[in-house]
Measured scan of single mutants.
Amino acid sequence: VTVHVDGVEYDFDNPEEALKFAKKVAEDKNGTYEVHGNQIRVT
């Protein structure tokens, strides 16, 4: 699973970890996250 944040890609073997990371980053920057299959984009 790849999490995209501001043009940087973070790869996770564990989808739950990826989702947790995306949620935290989105909260920290008052943004949102979208899941597209095995890609998660934080905006």
Score class of each variant (00 low, 15 high):
Arg41Asn: 11
Asp11Tyr: 15
Phe12Leu: 02
Val1Ala: 10
Lys24Tyr: 07
Tyr10Phe: 10
Tyr33Thr: 05
Asp11His: 15
Ala22Gln: 01
Gly7Glu: 06
Ala18Asn: 02
Tyr10Arg: 03
Asn14Ala: 06
Asp13Cys: 14
Val35Ala: 05
Asp13Pro: 12
Phe21Arg: 03
Ala18Met: 00
Asp28Trp: 11
Asp6Cys: 11
Leu19Trp: 05
Val1Phe: 15
Ala26Phe: 03
Phe12Gly: 01
Gly7Ala: 05
Val1Asn: 05
Lys29Trp: 15
Lys24Thr: 10
Glu16Arg: 05
Asp28Phe: 10
Asn30Thr: 04
Ala26Arg: 02
Phe12Gln: 00
Glu27Lys: 13
Lys20Glu: 14
Asp28Asn: 10
Val1Gly: 03
Asp11Pro: 15
Glu16Met: 07
His4Arg: 09
Asn30Asp: 10
Val3Tyr: 00
Asn30Arg: 08
Gln39Thr: 13
Asp11Leu: 15
Asn14Phe: 06
Glu17Ile: 06
Glu27Thr: 11
Lys23Asp: 09
Asn14Glu: 09
Ala18Lys: 02
Ala26Thr: 06
Val5Asp: 04
Glu9Ile: 14
Gln39Asn: 11
Asn38Lys: 08
Asp13Ile: 10
Val25Ala: 12
Val3Ala: 01
Gly31Lys: 04
Glu27Val: 09
Asp28Arg: 10
Gly37Met: 07
Gly31Ile: 05
Asp6Trp: 06
Glu17Ala: 09
Thr32Glu: 09
Ala22Asp: 02
Gly31His: 06
Asp6Lys: 04
Gly37Trp: 03
Tyr10Val: 05
Pro15Ser: 12
Asn38Met: 06
Asn14Pro: 00
Asn38His: 08
Ala18Asp: 02
Asn30Ile: 04
Val5Tyr: 09
Asn30Glu: 09
Pro15Asn: 08
Glu9Arg: 14
Asp13Phe: 08
Asp13Ser: 12
Tyr33Ala: 04
Ala22Val: 04
Asn30Ala: 06
Phe12His: 02
Phe12Ser: 00
Gly37Ala: 07
Gly7Leu: 04
Pro15Tyr: 15
Asp6Pro: 01
Gly7Asn: 08
Val35Lys: 07
Val3Asp: 01
Asn30Tyr: 06
Val3Leu: 02
Glu9Trp: 13
Asn30Cys: 13
Thr2Asn: 04
Asn30Leu: 08
Glu17Val: 06
Ile40Pro: 00
Glu34Lys: 05
Val42Met: 04
Arg41His: 15
Ala22Trp: 01
Glu34Trp: 07
Arg41Lys: 13
Lys20Ile: 11
Glu17Lys: 05
Gly31Leu: 09
Glu9Asn: 10
